[in-house]
Design a protein around this nucleic acid. Structure first.
Length: 318
DNA sequence: CGCATTTGACCTGCGC
DNA sequence: GCGCAGGTCAAATGCG
């Protein structure tokens, strides 16, 4: 998926922006006022040339550090992708080996495999030929599309709510055999005639992940799309496009369900709609929200801001 | 009081 | 035909 190729996660942050080398003759700036004034007094004696030189050196150092961090992030993404594909292969093998207790379960498992493509591509699925032969009278044929999204939630969050902008009414809950977590059934009631249904269940592998299965297509525009026409814009680009993005703190868990729009001319070549400004904005919001919750990030940000502020104060004084 | 959610009963499809 | 499992219905319940 090469996440880093389309999301530049480089924050250009320097967690310790004023850290100087040991052989540097500068005094560390993070000191008390008294020391700072002494430091400033000494600095006035330093020629402008030296000052420029040290700043350039500092800039180079920060650039190098930034580049190193970017490389590390790229590596992490690649490793994550490799591990993920390994896991998928492993799961597929297990499913093949596993004696299937019933057709229903088997068909559901195949849907999971069809849809569990993550960000890599279109997670919208259609039933396989084999499956459609076995189950000709399936809901799929009645309502059309089935799509599945994965939503990372807090471990403590026990609810089965996937916020996707639509209005859903819960009409049932059932404990299924293959998963101890209950499955909740929702109907879209934004429009009275909307046939779309949604099933939400916690992933059996990871209880913090909610698996939402959408059946059918909305016959009405997305609520936020209506808002967008009157000024507000959100990530929704199509009436039938459930889109979920989640970022786990432990790693770049990004799950997108970018199903094609109804008006898409060529279904075989789904266009990446990441370039859409709405999607970009949504991704930015998600990243910002995740980052602000990260104590490491807030600490680094505090250091960066205080460093900047002090730098600015020092320049004003000069 | 109205609305949303819960939950047990019922329905339907499938395998044996 | 029976049992099992998933899906749906609708009365009961809770909440604002």
């Amino acid at each position: 998926m090469a996440l880093s190729s389309w999301i530049n996660t480089s924050l250009d942050l320097n967690a310790n922006p004023l850290r100087l080398n040991d052989d540097d003759d500068h005094v560390p700036l993070s000191m008390g006022n008294e020391v700072q004034s002494n430091f400033l007094g000494l600095e006035r004696k330093v020629s402008v040339k030296d000052e420029n030189g040290s700043l350039v050196e500092e800039l180079n150092r920060v650039s190098a550090e930034n580049k190193r961090l970017t490389d590390m992030l790229t590596m992490m993404c690649e490793n994550y992708n490799a591990l993920r594909s390994q896991l998928m292969n492993h799961m597929n093998k297990n499913l093949e080996k596993e004696p299937s207790p019933s057709k229903k379960r088997r068909s559901e498992s195949s849907i999971i495999n069809d849809n569990n493509t993550g960000i890599n591509g279109n997670s919208e699925s259609s039933s396989t030929d084999e499956e459609s032969n076995k189950r000709p009278r399936e809901e799929i044929t009645k309502t059309g599309k089935i799509s599945r999204i994965f939503v990372q939630t807090e471990a403590s969050d026990t609810g089965l709510v996937v916020k996707d902008g639509y209005q859903w009414r819960k009409y049932g809950q059932k404990v299924t055999r293959d998963n101890p977590s209950p499955r909740a059934y929702f109907k879209c009631y934004y429009a009275p005639t909307c046939p779309v249904k949604k099933k939400v269940q916690r992933s059996i592998e990871d209880q913090s992940v909610l698996v939402a299965t959408y059946e059918g297509e909305h016959n009405h525009p997305h609520p936020t799309q209506i808002e967008a026409t009157s000024g507000t814009s959100r990530c929704w680009t199509s009436s039938a496009v459930p889109c979920s993005t989640s970022f786990a703190f432990s790693g770049p868990t990004i799950t997108l369900d970018l199903t094609k729009s109804k008006s898409s001319d060529n279904p075989e070549t789904p266009k990446p709609i990441v370039d859409s400004p709405e999607i970009r904005q949504f991704l930015v919001e998600q990243m910002a929200s995740s980052l602000t919750k990260d104590p490491n990030f807030t600490a680094a940000l505090a250091v960066a801001i205080s460093g900047k502020m002090f730098q600015q104060n020092a320049t004003e004084k000069w």
